[in-house]
Design a protein around this nucleic acid. Structure first.
Lengths: 346, 346
DNA sequence: AGTGCCATAGCAAGCGCTTTCTATACGGGG
DNA sequence: CCCCGTATAGAAAGCGCTTGCTATGGCACT
């Protein structure tokens, strides 16, 4: 029924071994023979059996990319960049690899399950994007899993997540803390003193680091930590909207809002407009990430630009062994404060 | 080195066959034995070898999802919805499946390559999202490929793309034509007569259908087809921006712009603002898709809402055989005109 | 012409799992 | 008390490919 290597071999009048070698191109085959084999492949419309090949070679060409939310451009951009680097179709040469984008939904269980699935497929590499959940139990399980993956020869690269020591995983972390600090310092410099902060979901490294940066900046100015002006929620516009309504209720004299990311900031802007506050005249708003739509917000969003595509591309290259890993297996990637129209003098 | 089925069998004092049966759960195994096997699996930290399993069983649990641009929420939303339905981790029960999101970048070659890769992996199902490129040669190649996939038992579902007759592929198409028509009719009803149209990339079904809907509406009103007021470009904000500048140059008296999608519309809005035109007082703007950020645009975007997540979820269910395919293997999904602040009287 | 080496091609042994077929043990009915 | 059906476990034959090792020419060199 289905065409196998043996069929091709028969047709080309060579042994299966030769066909395999032509296809893999890592063994000298006479030009004429190769020609003949290739023709047979073509005529029979032969397609290699991936599982069989992976089994025999004890290696697969699958590369996993874990993301928290595939519908969020933050992750989409990174996933796309990794994919373009791993040499999949259209990428550079070097054998076609299948990139597997896995949507964890931010759940540590699913993260673990996907990693097991990838381990099962003997993935060549895994890139894990986005922040981690801060939970001792899961952290331990994750560490063990990463350990096992790297032991099995799967290259693991974390992108936008803190290092996982002792696991052999390379980490390209974002300086969320520094970015958060820069943002708040910017606001403080503009004279803002009553600043609301809409943080991401609790128990996540990204959330915590950005928030710490914010608090560091406040502390430097001798301002209270302002915990009562900090609200948590998922990284979506609804959170930004609802939290803003609540912040305005708690502190009507608010003059600035820092959001956990641009999407949240957009929701905050909407709520402010509905409340009749002008941006930035009455209330300044700042986001984080500098996603593509942020420049088109009205007014354009002040934010911290994270080089998502560049970082992810680098992660992809490291995963493919096409770039040396950073010293110590860890590198920190800094964001850049981008001041636009949504922030102004208090 | 790595733990195999045989190791587990030895440890549990049973045969490899029994272990396999416990793991697959499709053969009676005494409770006590199962218990013993499961314990051994746990103790040895055994992970099934996917390739070996797929080879022996002649089937894999991979499901492919093809998207044009993973960084675009339009596709991200669909990919996420499909993924949540295919029973991957976190999905419903029914065995864990690995969803493979493949980024074609809109290139037909890559589309074909990815399909071959998926074919190679003996994927259980493939969901192809987004419009197709209209090129006779590629269409033929694609048809042949889809044919071969379905012949091999891979279920193929097209989501947001016209049917591919004779291939055995199920198609859930969007009524882009109807949506395009509704949008322009809305504008015409508001009294607009000089309407610019920023279409997507040429040679794509989505682009053509939306444009045809637009022209149908114009024709019904007895207006010229206005080809000179139609510009093409990729689905990104830069296109919207540049095209708007050009449209204003060609027709300063323009009172409305219809964009190929919301992202393009955002770019158009930016260009209009820069040109000092108020929205919608001077120029109305309409988008397409109703992506999440559209409601937060200022003014909020009038657009055509496509039930992306619902359609994709359905595609996923059909791909998994959990929902009956529509009669004739084809269904058309209609959009809904959503009128918001960006359009007004001419 | 003889010798040895390089370039190619083939042989055959798995890779780790699934599954068909066969074997065993047990219990109930005749 | 024996026979047979039922339930459960094992033996073994692959699944389609890769790859280490071996075999075979042909050529250059002596």
């Amino acid at each position: 029924m289905t065409v196998t290597l043996a069929d091709v071999a028969a047709r080309a009048q060579v042994s299966p071994a030769t066909v395999s070698r032509v296809l893999n191109g890592n063994y000298p085959v006479a030009a004429a023979t190769r020609e003949r084999v290739l023709r047979a492949v073509d005529e029979l419309d032969y397609v290699l059996n991936g599982p069989a090949s992976s089994l025999a070679a004890a290696a697969s060409d699958l590369v996993g990319i874990l993301v928290n939310d595939i519908a969020d451009p933050f992750f989409g951009i990174m996933a796309g960049a990794v994919q373009s680097e791993i040499g999949g179709p259209g990428g550079r040469a070097g054998g076609e690899r299948l990139a597997v984008v896995c949507n964890t939904g931010g759940s540590p269980e699913r993260e673990l399950t996907y990693l097991t699935l990838l381990q099962r497929q003997r993935a060549a590499a895994v890139v894990i994007t986005g922040g981690a959940v801060e939970d001792a139990e899961h952290a331990a399980a994750l560490t063990a899993k990463l350990q096992r993956l790297t032991d099995a020869g799967t290259r693991v690269v974390l992108c936008g997540r803190p290092p996982a020591p002792e696991t052999g995983a390379v980490a390209l972390s974002f300086d969320n803390r520094g970015g958060g600090r820069a943002l708040t310092e910017h606001l403080l410099a503009l004279g803002h003193r009553r600043i609301g902060y809409i943080a991401g979901p609790e128990e996540r490294t990204t959330t915590r680091h950005r928030l710490e940066g914010h608090r560091d900046a406040l502390a430097d100015t001798g301002l209270p930590r302002g915990a009562e002006l900090t609200l948590h929620g998922p990284y979506d516009r609804a959170t930004g909207h609802a939290a803003t309504v609540e912040l305005l209720r708690r502190e009507p004299a608010l003059t600035a809002i820092v959001a956990a990311n641009d999407t949240v900031a957009l929701g905050a802007c909407a709520a402010l407009r509905e409340a009749g506050r002008r941006i930035p005249d009455d209330v300044s708003v700042a986001g984080f990430d500098d996603l593509p739509f942020s420049v088109d917000a009205v007014p354009a969003l002040t934010t911290v630009r994270l080089p998502l595509a560049e970082a992810a591309a680098r992660a992809g290259r490291i995963a493919m062994g096409r770039e040396q890993e950073p010293p110590g297996g860890t590198a920190t990637i800094h964001g850049e404060l981008v001041v636009r129209g949504s922030t102004g003098k208090a």
